[in-house]
């Protein structure tokens, strides 16, 4: 069965942003140092923030600008800033390789994206063609986030995994936006925002209490 994803029916701007997000996914999987991870994440957040602007939602222009600015502020600046502060407050330590190793992480990320593509083509065709277009990148990003959470040893990188996952969920929600329903995206983001806030605090206190954020060693706390 010849399959054509309506990915290429999107405007070139959208295509470019989606492409950037996917490349950044791989970059996140490959990054060794946490500072680089934070930067890549900030870049991914910023890239995603421009999507409302280029997606031609039928909302007033000023709302679009306001939304873009809000997303840009939270995803591109505030969250990375929090992570950076948390990173600085932790003692410097040599990077630990993930459970899976870097090369295999990247391969797993690619496999995840391939799985997402396969899902997209074998899904029953949704009524909204935009959903089909965005499904593969969105789901690929969610899988990348999960992969980061599963394979990384440092608590802070795992938190970044949650953020990447949230970016994927954000992408998945974009086709659902009709008129004033952009609040959906805002609520999801608010959710993650609080979640990350709590997690960063937890990591900070955990480090003060047990002097490590290495999840392998935190495990020894369990009963």
């Amino acid at each position: 069965m010849p399959v054509s994803l309506p990915l290429f029916s999107l405007s070139p701007w959208v295509q470019a942003i989606l492409g950037l997000i996917l490349i950044l996914n791989l970059g996140l999987l490959a990054a060794e140092r946490q500072q680089i991870c934070i930067r890549l994440l900030a870049l991914q957040g910023a890239a995603i923030s421009f999507l409302p602007l280029v997606m031609e939602w039928d909302v007033a222009a000023w709302t679009l600008f306001a939304l873009t600015l809000a997303f840009l502020f939270i995803k591109g600046i505030a969250l990375p800033h929090m992570l950076r502060r948390a990173h600085r407050s932790l003692p410097a330590s040599a990077p630990v390789p993930p459970y899976l190793g870097y090369t295999r992480s990247i391969l797993a990320g690619l496999l995840g994206f391939a799985f997402a593509l396969w899902l997209a083509v074998s899904m029953p065709t949704p009524a909204n063609p935009l959903f089909l277009a965005l499904f593969a990148p969105a789901f690929g990003t969610i899988l990348t986030g999960l992969l980061l959470i599963v394979t990384r040893r440092k608590a802070l990188t795992q938190i970044m995994g949650y953020l990447v996952m949230e970016n994927g969920i954000f992408l998945l929600g974009i086709p659902l936006v009709r008129g004033d329903t952009y609040w959906l995206e805002l609520t999801v983001m608010l959710d993650i925002w609080v979640g990350i806030f709590v997690m960063v605090l937890a990591v900070y206190h955990l480090n003060r209490a047990v002097h490590t954020t290495d999840v392998d060693r935190i495990n020894s706390l369990r009963d």
Partner: peptide, 13 residues
Amino acid sequence: QHGRVNGYILYML
């Protein structure tokens, strides 16, 4: 049930 959050999320995944 090994106590590693990574593992639990892996199960979900």
